[in-house]
Simulated assay, not measured.
Amino acid sequence: MPKERVAKKSRQHQQITKQGITFNKTFGQHILKNPLIVNTMIEKAALRPTDTVLEVGPGTGNMTVKLLEKVKKVIACEVDPRLAAELHKRVQGTPLANKLQLIVGDVLKTPLPFFDVCVANLPYQISSPFVFKLLLHRPFFRCAVLMFQQEFAQRLVAKPGEKLYCRLSMNTQLLSRVSHLMKVGKNNFRPPPKVESSVVRIEPRNPPPPVNFQEWDGLIRICFSRKNKTIGASFRFSKILALLEKNYKIHCSLHNKTLAADFDIKEKVNEIIEATGLEKKRARFMDIDEFLELMNAFNKEGFHFA
């Protein structure tokens, strides 16, 4: 390796390389090396000295150490035991050591502890499941400042009518306020990923909207599976009609309601949609209020999506 490239490496990275630890692409290990970006992410989190911070994927600990200097406690969740051991060694014997709690394991399979703020350079392959684990976590946290693949971040903040507006946009914005903070070039990481990145701030809506999220997601999944079709057309597929009919029959059974002999599921669904005036609308142009109106119209008639 050329000397000039070695010279540019952080001291911590050199130490890890000397010990024969290579970064694992399976875990999405791309270490954020630019201290200006690390500092900006921490600044945007508006941390308090009394805070407990959750960090996912601490890697070599560049961000972790800066967090430890500012808050009461950092809970760092690292899937790779090698890097977890290096992080432990990095703070061992320093005044920061008793402020660090290390959790070694997959954050998606681990119950999230209590925390006030989440700050993380996430492994990109867990972005979507982690966002929803975060947003459905209780008690509420104050905010999260997270690094994502740029296109994923753009989907989170996309508005109706925009190219990247999708089910992810709708669900995230139902449960939180999302803002794009900054773009981050691939050369700010070691090793550089193949994609550009972005930092996003997420604040959960507290109190949350009075919506059954599983049912909401069931409706949104139907509408966005073919987001360029009209809502009326999206509900004409036999699999969807069969699911709604099954759920409706369960509803009728639970409420001692007799199903008419000439009941036609397709006709009933069309009737509900037409009553909302949304039958000609396309999912990619609809906002949260319109989807809530559609879901409420179905629910009033005993139709559920969960």
Rank of each mutant, 00 (worst) to 15 (best):
Q19N: 13
P208Y: 01
D217L: 07
K246L: 02
I103Y: 09
K159C: 07
I288P: 04
M1Q: 14
L112G: 00
L96W: 11
E271N: 13
L135C: 09
E290H: 11
D106M: 08
G105K: 06
K227N: 03
V117Q: 06
F27S: 02
S127W: 08
V6T: 12
K66Q: 15
K183L: 08
V71K: 10
E43L: 03
C252T: 07
N62P: 00
R190T: 12
A242R: 14
Q125T: 04
E4F: 15
P139I: 06
L135H: 05
A261C: 06
I31V: 11
H13W: 10
R5A: 13
K268M: 09
F141I: 00
F114Y: 13
F148E: 06
T22D: 11
L136E: 15
P111Q: 03
S253P: 05
L32Q: 07
H137W: 11
K280M: 11
A85F: 07
L102C: 05
E293F: 12
E290L: 13
R82V: 01
I288F: 05
K300W: 09
A97N: 06
I240K: 09
R236I: 07
L241A: 05
I126K: 06
K268T: 13
N247K: 12
S176I: 00
A275F: 10
P204T: 04
Q29R: 07
A46W: 14
R11N: 11
A306P: 02
E162N: 04
Y165P: 14
D289M: 05
T60P: 14
P123C: 04
V79Y: 03
T172P: 07
P139H: 00
Q125L: 03
S238I: 12
P95S: 05
K3C: 02
P95Q: 03
I42G: 10
F235Q: 08
G218I: 00
T40S: 10
T50L: 06
L164P: 00
Q101R: 13
A97T: 03
I103H: 11
A297Y: 03
M286N: 01
M63C: 00
Q19M: 05
P35C: 03
A7C: 03
F140Y: 14
K18E: 14
K163T: 11
I126V: 12
I273A: 02
P95C: 04
C77R: 06
G185P: 15
T50M: 06
K9R: 12
